[in-house]
Design a protein around this nucleic acid. Structure first.
Lengths: 142, 142
DNA sequence: GTGCCAGCTCAAGTCGACTTGAGGTCAAGC
DNA sequence: GCTTGACCTCAAGTCGACTTGAGCTGGCAC
């Protein structure tokens, strides 16, 4: 049947066993039992892991992702939350685009030094004023 | 003259004093001396901090940023490196755009559950296959 | 002369997402 | 009977970028 050893889940998901155990511990996935001491997973766990990977790619933390599953394990994707995340991604994309353009500009800017380039200086202003934030957002304690 | 107390640099850069001391320790900025026990910074440090902020926004680590300053403290932005970073950002923007579109779609998808939506399932595939990576890239030890 | 404020040092803590290591179990194969 | 391999547990470590806390100093105002 579709009872998978952790090794098989590893293969199918590409995640190391340690990560799978960690996810289980966090309640992100569940094994359907044990054979001896070994966890057995339902084949459906692979899809769930894909869902988790997607959440991560979208910038959700594991804790946030955990909240996206109902008690019965079915995904519970609140449409408002999705819309909010889409907007957030949109914003981030805008910022990155500015950065990309500016960096590309700097890469072949004719000004002798970057500091003399008006475009570069404008960008600097933006970054300094916090209009553009680090990839990994600054939050207390991190 | 333009000798600034750390408190003044805080105000002008928006960074907490602890971060400024940390940056100094890392060699990202330097004080021009002490008045009593207090660091004095040249006003130019503010511009340098802006440069650092920009680097962070572009996704560089502090260590990488440190390499971008010549021994004399002037920025040494290798144009090849910039071009590479621009390309990298481009790639990331592409990925995020896919995510954003997919999430926006999911937010008002007519399918009864997300798992039944073909668009959603395609996205899931992408995420699972690693075509789309977490915002904070997975690297060993992190 | 004392109280306060802004600054200082140094060590340790924080956060998320895992990884690593030591030491143990168990079924299969030689 | 013994090794091998795949798995297990639990505690501790890792990484980057800072923050926090305890305990100090130096200058100014009253």
């Amino acid at each position: 049947m579709s009872e998978l050893d952790i090794g098989e889940v590893m293969k199918r998901s590409g995640l190391p066993a340690s990560a799978l155990r960690f996810y289980e511990q966090k309640g992100l996935i569940a094994s359907i039992g044990r054979r001896g001491q070994r966890r057995q997973f339902d084949a459906a766990v692979v899809e769930r892991l894909a869902l988790i990977a997607m959440g991560r790619a979208a910038g959700f933390s594991l804790d946030e992702i955990a909240l996206m599953f109902a008690a019965d394990g079915s995904p519970r994707l609140d449409r408002d939350m999705l819309a909010a995340k889409a907007a957030e991604l949109d914003e981030r994309i805008r910022e990155l685009t500015v950065m990309r353009d500016a960096i590309a500009h700097a890469a072949d800017c004719p000004a002798p030094t970057h500091m003399e380039c008006p475009t570069f200086r404008r960008l600097l202003q933006a970054a300094a004023s916090g209009a553009i934030r680090p990839a990994r957002p600054r939050r207390p304690g991190v």
